[in-house]
Design a protein around this nucleic acid. Structure first.
Length: 424
RNA sequence: GGGGAAGUACUCAAGUGGUGAAGAGGUGCCCCUGCUAAGGGCAUAGGUCGCUUACGCGGCGCGAGGGUUCAAAUCCCUCCUUCUCCGCCA
């Protein structure tokens, strides 16, 4: 959520930021009016409440002295009615304000390039050489099916489209990638591992920004009003929600494995084959809760941690800075890591590393004290995939394939594969 | 799933309609003391929202949300969490 005080004092500047995102800012036309109405109602309500508190004490006094308090009680009955009316009006006004504020995206950092589409994202660096073959490489879904390590057909039978069975060494490979990534982030990068709940409540989803605006992207459990998590970002960022941490506890660095569930509403027909766009996929997440002054250094750090995975797996990739058109709802700045997918001849997103500044912290009430006795302040939150596991497996299959249809296992994963070197 | 009990500050805890939510521990400052311990004194309800140039003032806050009442930690309703007994169960 944007800072309401910032909206009050710099409304035009905020609008400019939102316009860069291609956001419709007409909802803000009512902001000033609603905000002023809210504060007027607060003043009126509180004046009456103060009066009621005072007279109530007088009534108590009179009763104790066995005096007659009927006049005061009658008067307070009316005051009580008035308070109730003002409170109702106040609640309605605050709901309207909330409707506006909770649906406004974060404003982009100054360094974010302004753009019209993802084509305006800026390539920052390229790592590794694009894989080349002296034979016709197969897409990973054919490789996986032929090797009998991926089974899309049976998953469609058992559940539906956009699901998959990993089988045999395929399942083993997925599990190896998960363990490899977690171990790297815990042992080398200093993250604490969490294994989070894979369903969350509405409050958590509002905290990170998926609700109220993007409900149609989520799987919902009606009975309990829970949602399957679309990313571990949700439970992990909300881990400290509502708490006030000591400054020394920052930065908090969590890594988490979870399955992720996305309805993929609106992407019908896109990436229908293979592991790229599934309703359920595994991901290792990196989350950092940091000092505001540090958050942009922290973003570089976090991105480097995600990149390290690709480097150790020796998968060619590039890093792009997302332009305003491609920026996510909650993010102030995002770097995407894109891995080389030889059969599609493109770099495909495999990680998204973002600084949310205090946007999520406001929503989830994540605060810290810079020192003992200091006023609580919002921390900054960051997260990134470290990495998407299914897409990593797809990239391994495609980049490490051989002419005979077998796949070499990257060296870094072999300890997790029982020493096996090839899937054939 | 059914029955019981509970949720008050950093911790423990009193409080069944009426002035500022007891008390203890802890913490901070001070006294005493050669130093430490013990002892004594004072302070200590976090937060947040609003008003105010400011010093300040006020509202809300006893798990959450509603309700009754002039007045709610206290009475009523719904929900959440924890403990516990029974049943079921990976």
């Amino acid at each position: 959520m944007l800072d309401i005080k910032r909206l009050r004092t710099n409304l035009e500047e905020v609008k400019e930021g939102l316009v860069k995102l291609g956001e419709d800012v007409s909802s803000l036309d009512q902001f000033t009016e609603l905000d002023e109405k809210r504060r007027t109602l607060i003043v009126k309500t509180e004046q009456l409440q103060a009066e009621r508190n005072e007279v109530s004490q007088q009534i108590a006094q009179m009763k104790r002295n066995k005096e007659n308090a009927d006049d005061a009680i009658l008067r307070m009955r009316e005051v009580g009615e008035e308070i109730k009316n003002f409170e109702t009006e106040l609640r309605e006004t605050e709901e309207k304000l909330d409707q506006i504020l909770m649906r406004l995206p974060n404003t982009p950092h100054d360094s974010v390039p302004v753009g019209e589409s993802e084509d305006d994202n800026i390539e920052l660096r390229v790592w590794g050489e694009k894989t080349t073959f002296d034979f016709e490489p197969k897409p990973h879904w054919d490789l996986g099916t032929d090797l009998n390590i991926l089974d899309f057909e049976r998953a469609a039978k058992v559940t539906g489209s956009r699901f998959v069975f990993y089988r045999g060494l395929g399942a083993r490979l997925e599990r190896a990638v998960i363990s490899f990534m977690l171990d790297l982030h815990v042992d080398e990068h200093g993250y604490e591992e969490l294994l989070p709940p894979q369903m969350v409540n509405r409050t958590s989803l509002k905290g990170t920004g998926q609700l109220p605006k993007f409900a149609e992207d989520l799987f919902h459990i009606e009975e309990q009003d829970y949602f399957l998590i679309p990313t571990a970002e949700v439970p992990v960022t909300n881990f400290h929600a509502g708490e006030i941490l000591d400054g020394e506890q920052l930065p908090v660095a969590f890594t988490a494995y979870s399955a992720n569930f996305r309805s993929e509403a609106g992407s019908a027909g896109r990436d229908t084959r293979g592991l790229i766009r599934q309703h359920q996929f595994n991901k290792i997440e990196l989350v950092r809760l940091v000092n505001p002054e540090e958050s942009y250094n922290e973003l570089e750090k976090l991105t480097a941690h995600a990149e390290k995975v690709l480097q150790l797996l020796e998968l060619p990739y590039r890093v792009v800075a997302l332009c305003t058109a491609d920026l996510g709802f909650s993010s102030a700045k995002t770097y995407d890591l894109e891995v080389w997918m030889p059969t599609q001849n493109v770099y495909r997103e495999i990680s998204s590393c973002s600084n949310f500044e205090d946007f999520q912290a406001r929503r989830a009430n994540l605060r810290y004290r810079s020192e003992k006795g200091a006023k609580p302040a919002y921390m900054h939150t960051l997260n990134g995939s470290g990495l998407a596991v299914g897409r990593t497996v797809a990239a391994i299959l495609e980049n490490y394939q051989q002419e005979d249809g077998s796949v070499i296992i990257p060296e870094a994963l072999r300890p997790y594969m029982g020493g096996k070197e090839v899937i054939r």
